[in-house]
């Protein structure tokens, strides 16, 4: 069982793509991936193929920033505010709805594939019925303006493995856990260090909660972003992760970062919570593994690019990542 070892982390594949790959989803038990991209399209290809032959799905009118597989559909969301349902067999558009009035930043699907949730800069989290495309519920709780009168942004969402909870996180570092069934607000967690407001030198802000993940028993919520930034012209803060026992509203772990600067763009727990995996970047990229029981960093490495999203395969031994100009595959058990 110790075959998976973060210290054996190795890049096994790099596939260059024009533009920026912003989101990724994996066809179960395969290396067929769906990437949301800055060319307003979804790219569908087998990343391990010797010569990947991408199929492009056109329909969005801006960056595609969220891709999930739910039931028999692949659903994409973008800065155009649209959610689009695709049939992955026929590669045809099934449904397109204007889901938000502003940028959609992230999507998540329930494990049973019945619901998908979206978050956007209109500061609403919406729950959708996958089969009908109907709006199930609006979750309202994030302020539309920052305390300094600027537009806020709702960057991240996650659904717990048991499918009961939704977590959302915004620009100023406010995180809310919701009950998916009834929309009730269960907890509010603050991670203010992830938002840098510069009142003096540059008079605007940078940062925000960029990633959220529940542990396998749904009791822990990991929050990812960047620490305080001196010069906000650049992604100059340390990559930062905080973990909460959200039901007790108690912070259990704080990983303030050391070597790597930039945003933690995606977080995921290994299938048995052996470690928490984080990746992201500034001008370059990084990947990090944390052992929560020992409260320590096990392994970190430079990524070949700024990582915008990744997905873990079923056993947790393969990491499919989307990022600036390329897709990358890491393995923890490569020969």
């Amino acid at each position: 069982m110790n075959a998976l070892d973060p210290n054996k982390l190795k890049v096994v594949k790099e596939v260059g793509r024009p533009g920026v790959l912003l989101a990724v989803a994996q066809q179960p038990a395969s290396s067929r991936l769906f990437f949301g991209a800055s060319d307003f399209k979804v790219h569908d290809f087998d990343v391990m193929a010797e010569k990947p032959e991408p199929v492009e799905y056109a329909g969005h009118e801006s960056y595609v920033t969220g891709v999930v597989l739910a039931g028999k559909y692949m659903i994409s969301g973008g800065y155009d505010g649209r959610l689009i349902w695709w049939d992955t067999e026929t590669k045809q558009q099934v449904r397109s709805i204007l889901a938000h009035s502003r940028w959609i930043r992230d999507l998540a699907a329930t494990p049973n594939g019945k619901h998908v949730v979206s978050v956007a800069d209109d500061m609403v989290c919406r729950i959708w019925d996958v089969a009908s495309g109907k709006l199930v519920r609006d979750l309202l709780g994030h302020d539309s303006r920052t305390p300094n009168h600027f537009p806020s942004m709702l960057y991240a969402c996650a659904i717990s493995p048991d499918g009961r909870y939704i977590a959302t996180g915004d620009r100023v570092g406010k995180n809310i856990v919701w009950d998916l069934a009834n929309g009730r607000r269960l907890a509010t967690l603050e991670t203010p260090i992830m938002y840098t407001w510069d009142p003096k030198a540059r008079i605007h802000s940078i940062g925000g909660v960029r990633s959220l993940a529940f542990s396998s028993d749904s009791s822990l919520l990991a929050v990812g972003g960047m620490g305080q930034v001196g010069n906000i012209d650049h992604l100059g803060g340390l990559a930062r992760v905080e973990v909460f026992n959200w039901q007790k509203a108690e912070r259990t772990h704080e990983f303030a970062g050391d070597e790597y600067n930039g945003l933690v763009e995606r977080l995921a727990f290994a299938p048995k919570d052996q470690w928490l995996l984080a990746a992201g970047g500034d001008n370059a990229g990084f990947i990090k593994f944390f052992d929560l029981s020992a409260s320590k960093l096990i392994k970190q490495d430079k990524a070949p690019m700024h990582v915008h999203d990744f997905v873990l395969n079923e056993n947790g031994g393969t990491i499919y990542a989307a990022g600036h100009g390329k897709a990358v595959v890491w393995s923890l058990d490569a020969a």
């Binding site: 600027f150 540059r202 008079i203 605007h204 906000i232």
Partner: peptide
Amino acid sequence: SRAWWDSHGQNFETHLELVTE
């Protein structure tokens, strides 16, 4: 003067703030 627009990182976020203003 309205400073500082030097968006080497996060150009779109910075402009969302500053152009909106």
